[in-house]
Amino acid sequence: MPDWTTHVVAGWITGKSIGKDVSLVVAGSLLPDVFKIQLLFDFLKIDAHGFFDPLHTPIGTIFVALFIAALFEASKTAFILLITGAFTHYFLDFFLIHVADGIKLFFPFSWKGYQIHAISSGNYWVTIFAIGVAIAFYFAFKKFSRA
């Protein structure tokens, strides 16, 4: 995964670009990583045995977003914004280099992972670039909203 800052910044830029509720798009950008709860089990040396893996698949994220959206008055809008954020997450994850595996796009029908293998998750220049773009966006939006 790219780091969460890159994911959040991408979600923020997307939210600002579509002119909708940034808070939900940004929250959605971290939604697929709910599966990181696995780390707690790893820390406790409990083998969760793939139980949480579906949370990092498109179908799993749709159901997580559906559940969270049900907690909002405008649940349809909330769902669309959360999913938009989650889409940015998967889009960025697609570019990561791995020797095998990848995003299980068609789970549970197929366990095959898909990946473009372009950028290392250790590459911090991606984060610096994303923050730079976000700062440029921030000032551009500030200027346009004044005009």
Partner: peptide, 9 residues
């Protein structure tokens, strides 16, 4: 979700 997670498990 529980169904998917159980299937994965």
């Amino acid at each position: 979700l529980l169904l998917l997670m159980s299937y994965s498990y």
